[in-house]
Design a protein around this nucleic acid. Structure first.
Lengths: 189, 189
DNA sequence: AGGCTTACCTAGAGGTCCTAGGCAAATCAT
DNA sequence: ATGATTTGCCTAGGACCTCTAGGTAAGCCT
């Protein structure tokens, strides 16, 4: 009997693909085992439990997202960087719905620290270098930007914007214009 | 044997309380049946299935949230209304975590139309009357505000802001200041 | 009081999660 | 190469959740 050659990493990768196909909440240990043609009990020597699998998936997705964003803003600054950041974020969420859902998981502080969660804030800070912002305004702006991007993507996914004809794309661009102008005028807010 | 007197509405109410106690994802038909001291099979004459129960819960929460917000902005305008809206939204999410999670469910378009989902946008429009905004800027602004509120609340709940000492409350107030100033200056953005 | 509706029941099938313990494949030692 | 060790995947099985089918009894209606 040939072995399937499972490892925690391969399981996590497959779980991520599965999440994008069937939705994050449908990522189950059983489904993953079926995908590899093994019994579900066989996975428990690689992952502690179903929650552990989801956490690993979340960490993977956070790292991927951070990479995409980092690549997007490399060599840009000011509004260029803002738009690149925002579009990379939104694109990742659209192309990888299951993975993006995973990034919304509540991680315990230790796991979050180990993950790329901190990298997001760091990159947002880098992007703010093009604007004239210093602490504590920088932190406030980081939170506002992150909230807005996440909120927009999240509502877009839930279909909250479908009720109105105005193009979601046009609104998005306008929101980026607004945020840019807000950041430039921030000190006087 | 006395009857428990179950109805779909009572089940939904109890499910909402349960959600706030143990989390939306832990709202199960079995747990709800235990709460009423009946067998789980007994609930299926009132609700179609577990998903149906969650949808009812989502619709309930959306209506409650809309009511809270409507009450908050009644008689206010401009920044007063903006702050009242935002605080009511955030307060509901903090006091009713399970219900708020339910509001994030993806509802099919028909259900969404029946629910109070449209009321949100309508109220946000009412609040914008204090600012000098007309279509399509109004829709863009509604989407930006909704996204930001939802995003902030959502990230706050996921613990994304805990990594930095700057008070979440102070950042929130600053965000509201920024949004107010953004709305006032919108036409020139 | 008898009949009808309906609220709740039991029984049971199928799925997911997870533990305990077993066997065999791969790896290592001699 | 062969025996010993490790480890990957197995079977068995318990606990819980979802949902259907069909039964019994409580409460309402005349």
């Amino acid at each position: 009997m040939a072995r399937a050659g499972l490892t925690a990493d391969r399981l996590t990768q497959a779980a991520a693909d599965l999440a994008d196909e069937v939705g994050f909440e449908n990522v189950t240990v059983s489904a993953l085992a079926r995908h590899f043609g093994v019994k579900d009990a066989s996975l428990y020597s690689h992952i502690r439990n179903a929650q552990d699998l989801r956490v690993r998936l979340a960490v993977l997705a956070l790292a991927e997202l951070a990479d995409q964003v980092a690549e997007a803003i490399a060599g840009r600054s000011g509004k260029d960087a803002l738009v690149a950041f925002a579009n990379a974020y939104r694109t990742y969420a659209r192309e990888h719905p299951g993975r993006y859902s995973a990034t919304q998981m509540a991680l315990d502080p230790d796991t979050a620290a180990d993950s790329a969660a901190g990298k997001h804030a760091e990159m947002t800070r880098a992007l703010l270098r093009g604007y004239d912002l210093w602490e504590p305004d920088q932190t406030d702006a980081v939170r506002l930007l992150h909230s807005t991007f996440h909120g927009y993507v999240s509502l877009e996914r839930s279909g909250a914007f479908h009720s109105h004809p105005r193009g979601v794309e046009a609104s998005w661009l306008r929101a980026l214009d607004a945020l840019d102008s807000l950041l430039r005028a921030w000190p006087s807010v």
